[in-house]
Amino acid sequence: MGALYKQNDCEEHKKMIAFLDHLGKNTRTSFTKLGRGTFFLLQTLSGILSVLIRPRLLFNQMYSVGVLSFLIITISGLFVGMVLGLQGYYILSDFGAEETLGVMVAASLVRELGPVVAALLFAGRAGSALTAEIGLMKATEQLSGMEMMAVDPIKRIITPRFLAGLLSMPLLAGLFSAIGIIGGQMVGAGLLGVDEGAYWSQMQANLDFQDDIINGVIKSIVFGFVASWIALFEGYDAIPTSEGVSRATTRTVVNSAFSILGLDFILTALMFGDN
């Protein structure tokens, strides 16, 4: 009996040690990765000046990020707006407040859904493509080749893409919200008979430029920063094989989604906490 207990103890003990060992190793890899990521970010930021001298690099990248994301953002914005119109109408009409549908649709989009959903779509569409592109450039020695030609791959390749992501995000979020508001109007005013004049005028009267629009833009800039950073770093840090690149692409989508949603909570608490 005693021996049995002892053996059990021993097993437990071993499991515990293995668990701690595992935890320790994982924590250490996460921290070293965070360190590498931070260093990478600093290097990327240090290239901003050289990109501003050659704005064509930036415009080309903004164009390709825009082309990648335009369709998915427009279509998703339209559907999200239409659903908001429907759901909003059902709730508001119970209180006889369907005139304020415009406010509800616009505030939800500008404050939350525009920045968040556009950023999630951006991460899934443009972010994963960036990771794959950079990862493949690494795997096929294009980045090392560039270094041997005395061209800094971070400044030449990474920084323009980073800035493009950062600057495109507010534009894409704005597009998403604008199309969503039109979608809400189509359903609310077009199908369900909310007064069209009221939809727009209530929206104008009750949306606050500072509280709603500026805060929404700040959110989307933060999300653009984080999503571009994650996408580019995962590509740059990928194991240079086809399998390594495909894993990195998956990590980009997962990590961006977590970061965007987590940051959204923090930013919302900071921005709208006091009303």
Partner: peptide, 16 residues
């Protein structure tokens, strides 16, 4: 210095 060193990679390493 690297501007004065040419290197031909095993894979070519052309920019795709």
């Amino acid at each position: 210095l690297r501007k004065r060193m040419g290197m031909l990679f095993q894979s070519g390493a052309l920019l795709t």
